[in-house]
Nucleic acid binder design. Structure first.
Lengths: 332, 332
DNA sequence: TTACTGTTCGATCATTTGATCAATAGACGA
DNA sequence: TCGTCTATTGATCAAATGATCGAACAGTAA
C-alpha cells in the first residue's frame, strides 16, 4: 500500500514501514517465545533470513513488546534482591520468602539460605579460614548446616564469646561449626564489650587474643549477624551493655550494630564510650574480606540498611520483609 | 532442619523437596528471562552446575512459572476479533496469530491465550465453580496454566470422562486443573455417548451423576472445545461414535459439536439417534453461564461458525485462520 | 551386608543463537 | 547519469544453549 504516491512526505511512509516491521516483530516474537520455534523455522515462515529474524526479535524486545512474568511468589524476592545488589554493590543478596509466622519464625528460612551460602565455601578442598559473628541467626545457620568432614578448614570468632559474668556466649557458632566439620576452632576469649578501656587494652595485650585476631585477619570470608539498637537488642538483653549505655547509644542515633560496633543511619561507626570498649575486630580490618550478613525481619530493617549504607557488606541474606523495608527506604 | 518429625510420611517430604526445587526454578527463571543472565552466571549464582540450571529452567517452563506475553495488537487479528465480537454479540474474542504449520500446531497458541482467560477467572478470591469440556485444546489450556493455590474453587466436567471401553478420557482437564490449584474436582462418571437410550437414562438416574450435574449447573463459566463432524472428528477417532453413526450425522448436515451435541450450520442441535444418547449437560442448561469456546484451525472454521450462529457462546478463543474463515463467510 | 533399581548429577557434543563484517541496494545530490 | 553515502542484508564465527549419555548416589529388598 505504500506504493501509491511517490512524492508523499517522509513521515507517513516511515511510520507505515515501522508499523509493518513491528507487526512482523510481534509475529516473530510470538513464534519464538510462545511457540518455541527456532529462528530458522521462523525465518522460513516469515520469509526472511535468519539474521533478519534475529533483528526482529531484538526490535521486539527493545520496543517492549515482549513481557515476561515469572509467576511465583519468589519473583518479588528476586526483584528486591537485584535492586539491593545493584544499589549497594554487593556480590549477592539472597531474599528468602517472608515467613508469616512470629518474629523469630523467619530464622529457619534465613538459616537455611545462609547455610547454603556457607556450604558453598565449605566444599572447597583447599584449606579455608572463615570467621563468624554471633547471634541467633548465625547460630541457627550453623545448626541448619549438614555435617561434612572438612578438617582442613579453620573457623574463628570475630566477637568475644564470653559475657561479663564469665558465662560463655550461647549464640556462638564456631563451636558447632567446628564440631560438624572436624575443623580447627579459634575463640575470642573476651566479652563483647569490656568493662573499661583499660580492661580492653589488657585483653588486647594477651597473646591468645592477639593470636586469634591474627587468624581472623586471614579469613577469606565472614558470616555475621546484624543487631538492632533498641530495648530488644541482643546486645542489651544479654547484658553486654547496660541500660544507661543503651540510652547513650540511642541518644547518639545508633540504629544498628555489626560485631558490637554501633552505627548510625549512614552506617558510620559511632565513636562513644562503648565503642572504645568493644573488643571485636575493627570493621575496617574486614574490608578486604567477603563480609556476609545474615538478618531478617521488618524490625531489623533500619539496622540492615545502616550496614548497607556503610558499605561494610559484600553479601546479604535477608527476608522479604526486611528487603521490602530497604527497597522502600531507598526508593528502589 | 528436617530433623524434627521422625515418623513423617513420604508425601510431605516429597512436596517440600518439590517446592524447594520450584523455588530455585523460579529463581533461575527470573535470572534468565528477566535478568537476561547467561546460564553459566546463574549456575554460579545458584551454586549448581550449568546442566542443573537447564533442568531448573525446563521445570519452570513445564510448570508454567514463566509467562510470556506479546504486547502488540496484531492489526489483522484485532480487526477480525472486533468484527466477530460485534457480529455475534460476544463478551470477547481472542484471535491469536495463525500457525502455518500442521493442524494441531496451533494448539499451543490457543492454549496460552485460553489459559490467560481462564486465569482471569481463577484469581478471584471468592469461591468459584467452573466447568470444563474436553478435547486437546482444553487439555492444552489447563496445561499452559501456571500453578496457583486456589483451594476455594471447584471444577466440574461437562462431558463424560470415560470411553465406551472404560478407559478414562485422556483429554480431561479437570484433574490437571484441580491438581494445579488444589481445588475440588467433580468428574462425570459416564461415556460421552451412551450405548443406548436406556443406558443413558440409567446413568442419569445415578445419584453421583445427578450430584455432579447439580454442581455443573452452578458454574459461573464454562470452557469448552468445539468439535468437527467428519472423519477426523475426535468424537469419531476416539470411538465415542461409530462409523455408521458418523455417517448418520453427516447425512443430517451436522458440521460441528459442542460437548458432544451435534449441530447444523445454523447452530441448531440436531435431534437424532445420537443426540438421544449424549450424556453431557444440555446446552440449554448452560445458557445462563459464560460459555467460552476454544478452537482454531481453518478446518474447524465451519464448526466454530455453527457454534457462533447458534448463539451458544459468550467468548471465543481462536486463531487467525479460523477467524478469517468466519469473517469471510459472514461478509464482515 | 550386598545386590539391585530407580533417580539424579555432571561431562560432552550437536544445535541454536547473537554479533561482527563485508557487500549490496537504494537515496540523494551533483 | 554518475558517484557517494547510508541503510539494510546476508555470510561467518564465537558464545550459549539443549540433549544425550555414563557415573554416582540413595533407597529397597533379599
Amino acid at each position: 500500500m505504500a506504493g501509491g504516491i511517490v512524492g508523499s512526505l517522509e513521515q507517513p511512509n516511515r511510520v507505515d514501514k515501522f508499523e509493518l516491521k513491528l507487526d512482523q516483530a510481534a509475529r516473530a516474537a510470538w513464534l519464538s517465545y510462545v511457540g518455541g520455534r527456532t529462528q530458522d523455522e521462523i525465518a522460513s515462515q516469515l520469509g526472511v533470513s535468519r539474521p533478519g529474524v534475529q533483528r526482529l526479535l531484538a526490535l521486539a524486545r527493545q520496543e517492549g513488546l515482549v513481557k515476561v512474568h515469572i509467576d511465583h511468589p519468589l519473583a518479588n524476592c528476586m526483584m528486591m534482591s537485584d535492586a539491593i545488589v545493584a544499589r549497594f554493590g554487593l556480590d549477592f543478596c539472597d531474599v528468602v520468602p517472608a515467613d508469616p509466622d512470629a518474629s523469630d519464625g523467619d530464622v529457619p528460612y534465613l538459616a537455611v539460605a545462609g547455610a547454603e551460602r556457607l556450604a558453598r565455601y565449605l566444599v572447597a578442598s583447599e584449606p579455608l579460614t572463615l570467621s563468624l559473628g554471633t547471634g541467633r541467626a548465625i547460630r541457627a545457620m550453623v545448626e541448619a548446616l549438614s555435617r561434612v568432614d572438612r578438617p582442613q578448614h579453620r573457623f574463628v570468632s570475630l566477637v568475644g564469646n564470653v559475657a561479663r559474668d564469665g558465662s560463655s556466649n550461647r549464640y556462638d557458632g564456631v563451636m558447632v561449626l567446628a564440631d560438624k566439620t572436624g575443623a580447627e576452632r579459634f575463640l575470642l576469649p573476651a566479652p563483647v564489650v569490656a568493662g573499661s578501656v583499660e580492661e580492653k587494652q589488657a585483653l588486647q595485650g594477651q597473646r591468645l587474643f592477639q593470636a586469634v585476631t591474627e587468624v581472623a585477619k586471614q579469613a577469606e570470608a565472614s558470616f555475621i549477624g546484624i543487631g538492632r539498637i533498641d530495648r530488644r537488642a541482643t546486645l542489651f538483653q544479654d547484658h553486654f551493655i547496660s541500660e544507661t549505655e543503651l540510652e547513650e547509644l540511642l541518644a547518639l542515633d545508633a540504629v544498628g550494630e555489626l560485631l558490637g560496633w554501633p552505627m548510625n543511619q549512614a552506617g558510620e561507626v559511632i565513636d562513644c564510650s562503648i565503642t572504645r570498649r568493644v573488643t571485636s575486630l575493627p570493621l575496617e580490618m574486614l574490608r578486604g574480606q567477603s563480609l556476609v550478613a545474615l538478618a531478617g525481619g521488618r524490625d531489623k530493617g533500619p539496622a540492615i540498611l545502616a550496614a548497607l549504607q556503610g558499605g561494610w557488606l559484600k553479601g546479604l541474606v535477608t527476608d522479604e520483609s526486611a528487603a521490602r523495608y530497604i527497597v522502600k527506604s531507598c526508593n528502589l
